[in-house]
Design a protein around this nucleic acid. Structure first.
Lengths: 230, 230
DNA sequence: ACCTGAACACCGTTCAAGT
DNA sequence: ACCTGAACACCGTTCAAGT
């Protein structure tokens, strides 16, 4: 009998990658990057991994969990400096939040999914911790800092979901143009306040509005105390 | 031959309702109210209207437009008092915004859809006009009022989409519980700021947090001027 | 134990054909 | 002109059956 050696028979397949959660998430990120989240279906992902859709359910519970895993994977690339980096907490916080928003801007559908997901995972926790650290370093009371991080992250995610969808889908852009047109043409008699602020409704670039919103959010969460505990 | 009379033969069907955009939207609202937006599909709506799915495309362009029409239909029931109602602009603004949020809370999936829809329609325009009017009546400069209404509506919609999904789907709640658990158990060594603010991260009721957020938003948008025009 | 083919129970949208 | 049956091109998830 031939001795038991490790068989070198690699010709079963052209190196079919071993199935694992990491491999599945990596392949999912690749599909999303190349074709968009809409095209990332269980069946497509399975095909990319050279297996059937049922096999994926060994590694992820469902589509929502997969989306969460994708976000955490992307977040790992975000640069998060130490919370007390040089006393410029406001600057650094804005940078980080903008980076997070821009990341989601690239994947608006993911942003939409994340909004109703409350993602978890080590990188998301790191993001929360860093934002919290920056607020605390800036002297914001713990209660306001904690509730404020929620507010800031929700705003970033919602902005990406809202704005970004338009760049992605022609239909969504049509819909937006319709609102713009209705606002532009709203009769002053019926809608006096829209008429009074009509120019301001359309002013500014997306980046200007985002920067203003972050500043306003920071100002508000710093100024308003949370209700006392029980 | 029998004289040509208007045939009274009403027994073709038990009063098949005439197809129209209004009838379609009304039926859609009913299905959503009874079974949730997930169950409102073109095929189901068509069946309720006793026709085939293709017929709906005579009245709505696609699913997204139908969602927009549903929102506007719901918004028609919102009570919007005159902008200058007794000088209590802040109180009235909070009431209206809370009512809008609570409305969307009942239909979280609609909130999610609306976020990437930028809805239009007479009632939505009315809502914008009223909010704008209240801010202007409160002395908020037009630029901040215009950008602020965007911020307030986005926050309300996102809050409904995020919070509400959990009540609707057990999976989403599981996901949330996972984040809660991770935050609760995050090691202080690795996540010092989460550890420092751990109690505050979980404090307060949903209503308290919403009220705080609206106050903070109002404070921020009132305090921070928008960049000067070109 | 780990994996998967095949099926279940659906989708939104289009279009050729009818009235 | 208005309407629609039938088809196109898909879905997520489950489960019995294999290895």
């Amino acid at each position: 009998m031939s001795p038991r050696r490790v068989p070198v028979s690699r010709r079963d397949r052209p190196a079919k990658p071993a199935l694992s959660r990491e491999a599945a998430v990596a392949a999912a990120v690749a599909i999303m990057r190349d074709e968009g989240l809409e095209r990332l279906t269980m069946r497509r992902l399975a095909a990319a991994l050279d297996t059937g859709p049922a096999s994926l359910y060994v590694y992820v519970r469902n589509m929502a969990e997969l989306h969460g895993a994708i976000l955490d994977d992307l977040l790992a690339d975000l640069e998060m400096s130490a919370p007390d980096s040089g006393g410029q907490w406001q600057r650094e916080l804005t940078r980080l939040l903008t980076a997070y928003t821009e990341l989601l801007f690239q994947y608006p559908s993911l942003a939409r999914s994340v909004l109703s997901l409350r993602p978890s995972g080590p990188s998301y926790l790191r993001l929360i911790d860093t934002l919290l650290g920056l607020l605390l370093a800036g002297g914001v009371p713990a209660g306001q800092a904690a509730w404020g991080v929620d507010l800031l992250l929700q705003h970033a995610t919602a902005t990406a979901a809202e704005q970004g969808t338009r760049d992605e889908s022609a239909d969504a852009d049509d819909e937006h143009q319709l609102l713009v047109q209705e606002l532009r043409e709203a009769p002053a008699g019926e809608y006096p306040s829209i008429a009074r602020a009509r120019e301001e409704l359309f002013s500014g670039t997306g980046a200007q509005r985002l920067a203003w919103a972050v500043t306003a959010l920071l100002s508000g969460l710093s100024a308003v105390p949370v209700p006392a505990g029980p």
